[in-house]
Design a protein around this nucleic acid. Sequence first.
DNA 1: GCGGAGGGAGTACCG
DNA 2: ACCGGTACTCCCTCCGCG
Length: 793
Amino acid sequence: MKVSFCLLDINSETKAGKTELWLWGIDDHEERVLVIDRSFVDYFYAVVADGYDPTEVKAKIMEIPNTLAVNAEIVSRKFFGKPVQAIKVYCENVGNTAKLLRSLEGVKDVLEDDIRISMHYIVDNDLVPCSWHQVEVQEEKNELGVRADRIYIAQAPPKAFEKPDFPQLRILSFSMACYSREGSPKPDRNPVVIISTITDKGEEKQLIAGEDRNDKLLLEHFIKHVQDYDPDIIVGFGTNALDWSYLVERCRILKMKLGLDRVQAEPHTSVYGHVSLTGIASLDLEDFMNQFPEVKVETLENLADHLILTKLKKPVIIEDVDFADYWDNQQRRLELTAFSMNRARSIKGISDLVLDLALQLSILVGLPLDYVMTAAVGFRVEWFMIRQAQKIGEMVPKRTEQHYRSYAGGLVLNPRPGLHEKIAVLDFKSMYPSIMLAYNLSPDTYIGPEEEVPVGGVYEAPEVKHRFRKKPPGFYKEILTYLLGTRNAIRDKMKEITKTSVEYRVMDARQKAVKIITNAAYGYAGWTGARWYSKPVAEAASAWGRHTILTAIKLAEKAGLQVIYGDTDSLFTTYDPKKIPELEKKIEKELGLEVELDKVYDHVFFTEAKKRYAGLLPDGTIDIVGLEVIRGDWAEVAKKVQEHTLEIVLKNNSPEKAAAYVRTMIQKLKQRDVPLRDLIIWKTLTKPPREYAIKAPHVEAAKMLSAKGWKLTVGDKVGYVVLTGEGRLYSRVKPYVFARLEEVDIDYYISKQVVPAAARILEFWGITEEKLLPNEKTNKPSKNLMEFMQPQT
DNA sequence: GCGGAGGGAGTACCG
DNA sequence: ACCGGTACTCCCTCCGCG
């Protein structure tokens, strides 16, 4: 019989020395199915050395005792574009056999022994995660005790096919709270006191520990609840780093097993730091944070707030530290449980918004849903490439960390400081991908300095002089042609569809997924960890990029436009509605790359610094780029003042008014009329505190947190405030959770945060830091004299 | 012993 | 665990200073 199913998860199981592939999915009757394929044997390639007869090499391989090689076949493949003969060796234990063959005479290289069997299976059979497949099967009785409505044995590998609808997924979102009076909770001593869950249908369920904080029953109920609801996807926040390992450990201590997946096994750590649940896609919303760089302190509450899930009322935030206090108070315990439930609701709300993109990334890249979300962008690009490589018979290079050599990147112009009117921003569309495509940049088209110019000729990069054959199209070109073509096609189709339709939403997500991979291709090429790393490719791309923008500047100036600023692929010029379209055409004609008029600023302000400016758009919104306002490591109070300063300057063209506003704010600060939270400075811990070469404020604050039992890891953000006192800054900081408003050094916030941020803008009009600070005895007379002598004011 | 200059460490941004 | 280019703050060392 034939069944159709949507593939959601895949794992491999070894039964009696034989590896099976288990495909988990939903069939077209909404039944949960497990399709087992026992016919796939994993493999690797043994590349035949020059001058050896493949038939003999193959025979030799088969003769080796204990190779475990079940079969071998001679195949023609490509490696970096060059045709090679290889022996495809099928065997049960790829790792050992590949090792044996590495030193065999006649074998030049061993490849793809580092690709996991489930990925070989997906790639070779062209399976598409989160998509429909048809497969010839025989039904088998569920004697394995797995949680599935049907179990099938595949008679042949499944085949992907197009089907527009998507099955109704069961999704469970959850959040947990632990009781600890000793800092970060530890599973060997601190119980889980609340788990809040909510399903995709909005059904809420809370599991709460008993008065004695005994969590055995709670955990049993949680496991049972998951088993009963049988979700296809489980969503949490911080689950990979925290929740899953905590729950597993906690269960072990209570002599239980956290068997909530579809084979009643424990969650297990997998690649990319992902924690995997067999048969269920486990998603961690923390992995989505890089989608929202605007959210600087990456908490669930901040993300929910950013996505306006909480527009009705700002929820009360209860810090982890205070959980124990809340729990121990009858009345406040209700607040804690409500808070926990709200977290679960936020998780559901956010996943409703981001799941489309996650699914499309999984479909495009070909990694199962849970993996694709945890994988860093470099690995997403790589899996997409591996998939394409298979299609054209290209073998996958090994991952060998290459020696790092830096190279020159994009060109940044010095801005013309001051306030400008009517400024156009021209952007090259997908500049690096377009360049790589236009000049056929690829590791396999690169012609080394010693090599002859091939028939058909070469493109030679400016400055760096790297050469690339014009024909045939290289691997990167194939990929970028597909990506850029697909994105354009999707965007064209989207124009014909109602914006509120489901179809539009799906296409928008697909378009975003394609964009993510396209934009990362250049960075991938220059990443020493990449399988298809090629410094010449990345270096040539940026060289052509510099050439491109330099040419564009010349053309703009020739057209009579003044260039105010430019960075990598953008140009800021005076706006002339007649000249701009002509310039666009001229640039496209001369360079073969598309430019577009991205926006026109009514007013735009530059300091002398690159990469920092603010512009007013016709609709009244203000773009702020690079300045303190958009930085996460400045106190909110300074950012607010700078933002308002910019608004006054850009909208009213009135620096004096802005200065007056700043002075008012300083007065307010002096009264300590400011919430403590506006004084917090957040900085990331980029290494373990011990390893810092110098003393730094955020590191000292981190040490104080650790001393109180906080578990801090690299990548965590530390929030601290500056206190009054003597000496270096690092000696008078305190984590904000321990601090009171009365102890903070308000003068620090005035002189080192608010005033510099405001003066950054106002200095252009001669309003210096000194002029913003109220006149006091602390002001040195000499400075006032200097001020007096400055001519421009 | 102290203050300031200048280089270095550290972080976060832009495209 | 994607690239290079850039701004900026605070730390730290060193130098001058009879």
